[in-house]
Design a protein around this nucleic acid. Structure first.
Lengths: 335, 335
DNA sequence: CTGTTAGCGCTTTCAT
DNA sequence: ATGAAAGCGCTAACAG
């Protein structure tokens, strides 16, 4: 049978509570005692029973990740990071796909919270800026960390300066001689949309280029909206020589439409995206994009959250970005 | 505060045990009594405490999904399906990325099992055919369901006739006039490799085409191996006019290499894959491939597993495939 | 710094 | 068909 805390206590010649203290890293245990306990636990291959722990401790040792599946790669990387942090802190993870657009999604989250009583949540965009959801979470008294939130609402989480990243990328493209640069935006409900648009405008302004409203078309972070956006942009009387898709999916849509028209990338059209998903390396030509350390961001968000749960201090950590210049950006064609 | 089983019992005028019976769908409860209990539970918004339930019931109500991340899209779809089944059965899900190649991976799984005591596992390829892992699981007495296992080892799970699917796809390509068809195989440790190779050979045989060993090159289900395989195949003195990549990633590598050489797909080269990942619709030209209902397969695997856990009967369910003919396959070029 | 005692909310076992 | 009592393995609260 499996060893219980009682067995460890007996083997180490201490009380159950002392073993509990050691395992929970509580203070007031002599180094010598701790070693004895650890040794006994190892010998008996003791593993605390999570159910008993939660039941007696009035906490679930569980955190939940809420996502709205913008992209599988993104979510999987976030999951990996969150999982790594959970493992280290001996927390469990539950997943919750949320249908952001659909009514009743707040109730769905509420039901998760009521049922599993997670000690905290990790939110990914666009849920990070879903006002009704955030309000309800606050009413329920659930702590949460945000990843790439437009506005910090919990003081716990992680972000990246998307605006500066895009501005940097714009500088790169402008240095290649491009003056007419199109942008297919992200979905209105995503925080990233505003940041990336702002970075696009920053880039133009810094180069002294007057923004042309015609060159900014609505998208929604999807492959399809990349195709549609590229069509509108390329059908313009004075079409752009470069297009910034608000994320890699969108940029891949642009690539697709260009190929469909027999337009050569990057010779006749430069394209760039944002996220550095694996796909950006797998398309032809490979996509210039901004690398976002998603896995790391997941890890940090969960770490901050667990720190807050454990009564420590937490913050919104800013992580660095990185430009990935590949084969989809090249000097502007002569006019 | 949160309602407990005791409160529901009091409100319904029955004992705790009766409430427990109702919630666990145990027999020996009068219809009338059950309704009373359900009504009281609804009024008090009662949710059983999962920790207490597991502690007293000696089961975790948890299943674990083990995966080795061949592709994010694939894993995410499986997760969604498994999650759907869990939800319905009031089971929790824990995730376990496993580094199949690395030594110590069996111990990593064992540690998961010892710590969380899941009531069962769901295995995805290639873990489904990892002999040392399976042996250890059996020693530990853990039940598991397999998804697309090469060999059925637990009697619980879901499969798809990959061999027949590939043979069908071959028939389609042969009907287009192709005679020299190349194949970049999957990784040796994956069950899918053998099936897909067998389907490729079936297809040739049925058309009376003598297989040419030169046309089969080793791959590993990756984009990179698709590029490498395409190079070898296209550098042949008598290169193929069509190439079957063992999965979509591989096929996308072929597309990439073809584009890099200025070879037009499908006019000069036909390409097809397997899986129908979202990417297959996003590349240019869009990829002909075999659709595998991954989400559904995840759901079924989890359902079967939970049925087995609950003492019911379970089996290996076979699900249907579907050919997706898109723009990467066309009549063979005249010789 | 360490130990004792009393639950946590549920299911089991055994009555009735 | 229903109920009473005895834990499941751990931590909280309080002693010492």
């Amino acid at each position: 049978m499996r060893a219980r805390i009682e067995d460890v206590a007996a083997a180490a010649g201490v009380s159950m509570k002392t073993v509990s203290r050691v395992f929970n890293r509580e203070p007031n245990v002599r180094e010598e005692t701790r070693l004895k306990v650890e040794e006994a636990a190892r010998r008996l291959r003791y593993r605390p029973n999570p159910s008993a722990r939660s039941l007696a401790g009035h906490r679930s040792y569980l955190i939940s990740l809420l996502y709205d599946n913008p992209s599988s790669n993104y979510v999987m990387e976030i999951i990996e990071g969150v999982l790594a942090a959970c493992e280290q802190a001996h927390y469990g993870l539950t997943l919750r796909p949320v249908d952001f657009g659909r009514r009743g999604h707040v109730e769905a989250v509420e039901s998760l919270v009521m049922q599993y009583r997670p000690d905290g949540l990790v939110l990914t965009p666009p849920l990070t800026d879903d006002a009704p959801l955030l309000r309800r979470l606050r009413e329920l008294g659930v702590r949460y960390a945000t990843i790439s939130a437009k506005r910090d609402s919990s003081g716990i989480g992680v972000t990246l300066d998307e605006r500066a990243a895009v501005a940097d990328m714009m500088a790169h493209v402008i240095a290649l001689g491009h003056r007419r640069i199109g942008h297919i935006t992200g979905h209105r409900s995503h925080g990233g949309r505003a940041w990336r648009l702002a970075g696009y405008l920053d880039g133009l302004r810094r180069a002294g280029i007057e923004p042309d409203p015609e060159l900014v078309v609505e998208g929604e972070f999807s492959f399809e909206s990349g195709i549609a956006g590229a069509r509108r942009l390329l059908d313009l009387d004075d079409p752009p020589t470069a297009i910034f898709g608000a994320n890699d999916d969108t940029a891949c849509g642009v690539l697709y439409e260009a190929a469909a028209r027999g337009l050569r990338v990057p010779e006749q059209l430069s394209v760039f995206g944002f996220d550095d998903t694996p796909m950006s390396r797998r398309v032809w030509p490979s996509l210039s994009t901004v690398r976002q350390p998603s896995r790391e961001m997941g890890r940090i968000a969960a770490q901050q959250l667990i720190a807050a749960i454990s009564g420590g201090s937490a913050q919104v950590v800013r992580v660095p970005y990185q430009l990935q210049i590949r084969h989809s950006t090249a000097p502007a064609p002569p006019r």
